[in-house]
């Protein structure tokens, strides 16, 4: 008789398989750690893949300097608890030019503090492979993404240079100047991420749980006033409301949702029956049409 393995077990095994293939084939991999729920799952799977060893690669966090403070505290605790190596990288040039989410458009800000920073960090350390938590279900332009996504020199993503992937065979042989992004969560959905966090009882940043937080409403989006760097517009007074986040990023660019789901089980329940997809909370995506695809070609994942 055949015993059916649950879909989460299969997704987990597939991710572990991908981690091991990449670690065996690439010279110097790194795990792009963004502290959010996808990164949390990614890191957990990396630990599983190499148990009882530690993951044979460091974590890389691109710090835009505008992350929620609770994210940074969570990051540091995670690294300590699991005894991991963390590299944090800030685009100093961007900081010097005071590139911030208020005086610059979201796309310029993201380009400098995230995309350029990531490329710099990968180049400085000479990483030939970077694990990321991207999923194919996130957005139309990602539906065709490979598990091993190749980047030519300058980190450019060329749809025509992507390699066909067949069966479970992952070909990681690099051509001159090539690097690769590796996506172990390719076949996961947003719902799977939550189900898995619940099943594995993973710790997540408390911002995912509803709590009373000071908020202001702008363009129909709820922003949380994380620190005194958020310039209040005339007439704005922060209003304390019960909110949580479905996705985490830079606080001035990440919208909260009103919610009373204050523990993980309620968040999962709310998410599994949610009516809007998560990227609606990510303000940069509304910036221009086809935005993600362009960003990807430029190296934003």
């Amino acid at each position: 008789m055949t015993v059916a393995i649950s879909h989460l077990d299969l997704l987990e095994a597939e991710a572990i398989h991908i981690f091991r293939e990449a670690a065996a084939q690439f010279r110097k991999p790194v795990l792009m750690y963004s502290i959010g729920k996808d990164s949390t799952v990614l890191l957990h799977l990396a630990r599983k893949a190499f148990y009882p060893q530690k993951p044979p690669f460091p974590l890389l966090h691109i710090d835009t300097t505008w992350k929620f403070r609770e994210m940074i505290a969570f990051r540091d605790k995670t690294v300590r608890d699991f005894g991991l190596d963390l590299i944090t990288y800030v685009n100093k040039d961007g900081v010097e030019r005071n590139v911030n989410p208020f005086d610059f458009s979201p796309s310029v800000y993201t380009d400098v503090m995230k995309t350029a920073a990531l490329k710099q960090a990968l180049d400085i350390h000479g990483f030939d492979a970077a694990f990321g938590g991207a999923r194919r279900d996130e957005e139309a332009s990602r539906a065709k993404e490979r598990v091993f996504s190749f980047r030519s020199a300058g980190h450019r993503w060329d749809p025509r240079k992507q390699r066909p992937e067949m069966w479970r065979l992952l070909n990681g042989r690099l051509g001159a100047g090539e690097t690769v992004r590796v996506f172990p969560l390719s076949n996961w959905t947003e719902r799977d991420i939550w189900r898995y966090i619940q099943r594995e009882e993973l710790d997540i940043v408390p911002l995912y749980l509803a709590a009373p937080r000071p908020t202001v409403e702008r363009n129909g989006q709820l922003l949380v006033v994380d620190d005194d760097r958020l310039p209040l517009l005339p007439g704005e007074t922060p209003l304390v409301q019960n909110v949580r986040f479905r996705t985490l990023g830079c606080y001035p660019l990440t919208a909260a949702v009103k919610s009373t789901a204050a523990d993980l089980d309620s968040v999962v329940e709310e998410t599994l029956t949610a009516k809007t997809s998560e990227r609606q909370g990510r303000l940069i995506d509304h910036d221009q049409s086809g935005a993600m695809e362009k960003k990807k070609q430029e190296g934003y994942f």
């Binding site: 609770e70 505290a73 969570f74 009882e201 408390p206 995912y208 709590a211 993980l264």
Partner: peptide
């Protein structure tokens, strides 16, 4: 909120 660093999954 700065005080609690992680959200725990409740048993």
């Amino acid at each position: 909120s700065g005080g609690s660093v992680v959200a725990r999954t409740n048993p």
